[in-house]
Design a protein around this nucleic acid. Structure first.
Length: 272
DNA sequence: CACGGATCCTGATGGC
DNA sequence: TGCCATCAGGATCCGT
């Protein structure tokens, strides 16, 4: 799926354009991960005030009060435009508004669109309540991060993916951040020294911020809400580079499996 | 209760 | 317009 950078780039690509739009109609395709949670008609007539992001969720604030949570899952992407062609087989949600149509395309349907009354709503709390801090915000503090690592016995890569300490780090950027920090993905989080925690803290920020700046063009089939395809140029150091030479030391990049997901690392550059 | 594994679904790819 | 196995960006739920 889109990781935090792709979600943020998506948000930036339509947030300003949809602000102030009046919802005219709602289309539902096949079921997504969770049901919408309200009658679609209840959205009609409301105004989209703004679009925020929390972790990998897009949050549409509605008026009169309401909140629409959109998650892109593994294969979701969103477009916002006028005059879109009719919905295809993988278009599973569409908001027709006075300023354009917001459409979710998601072949695998791991994504979701969920309505909540507000952020204290039971559903919203269930989905957002346990999320860690935002990696690009002020809340991402080294002390708490290092302390959180100390308290977890799982492999550091799993902890990054877990999203309880810090949100937004997915399978690609977990490998990339650990490479930058020089840390072996299999190391137990609790064994990481303060110094290395500091390096990882900085690496997470750096990797995600750079990806946002590059327009989230890291995913093969990613396109933002303006329909601009990514450049198909993943300049990763390790991700998807199994057996290729490390860009730093030329040792072959290794691929392992952790939690049924691929992990890539350099045996030389990343110490246990 | 913290952790690891199975699970949802569809499409792309590569070996045979 | 072959078939089968494997893999893919996520995150919840369920045993142990």
């Amino acid at each position: 799926m889109p990781e935090l950078p792709e979600v943020e780039v998506t948000r930036l690509s339509f947030a300003a354009r949809i602000a102030g739009a009046q919802v005219l109609a709602v289309y539902l395709g096949k079921p997504l991960r969770w049901p919408l949670g309200c009658e679609p008609e209840r959205l009609v007539g409301r105004e989209v005030l703004r679009v925020r992001r929390r972790g990998k969720y897009l949050l549409l604030d509605l008026s009169p009060a309401g909140l629409l949570l959109i998650h892109l899952g593994m294969s979701g992407s969103v477009v916002f435009a006028h005059g879109l062609p009719p919905c295809g087989k993988h278009d599973h949600f569409e908001l027709t508004t006075s300023l354009g149509s917001l459409r979710l395309n998601d072949p695998r349907r791991f994504g979701a669109v969920v309505y909540a009354q507000d952020q204290d709503d039971f559903v919203a709390r269930k989905l957002l309540g346990r999320l860690g801090v935002e990696p690009l915000g002020d809340g991402f503090e080294l002390a708490a991060f290092a302390q959180g690592l100390k308290a977890r016995s799982s492999a550091i890569k799993q902890v990054l993916l877990g999203g309880e300490l810090v949100v937004g780090v997915g399978n690609i950027y977990a490998s990339e951040a650990l490479f930058l920090a020089g840390i072996r993905p299999t190391v137990r989080a609790s064994k990481i020294s303060k110094v290395r925690a500091a390096r990882l803290h900085a690496a997470v920020r750096q990797v995600l911020a750079e990806a946002v700046a590059k327009g989230g063009s890291t995913l093969r089939d990613f396109s933002n809400a303006q329909g601009e395809a990514g450049h198909f140029q993943l300049d990763a150091n390790v991700y998807d580079r199994a057996a290729l030479p490390c860009r730093v030391c030329e040792a072959p990049i290794r691929r392992i499996v952790q939690g049924q997901r691929s992990t890539f690392y350099c045996v030389n550059c990343q110490k246990p």
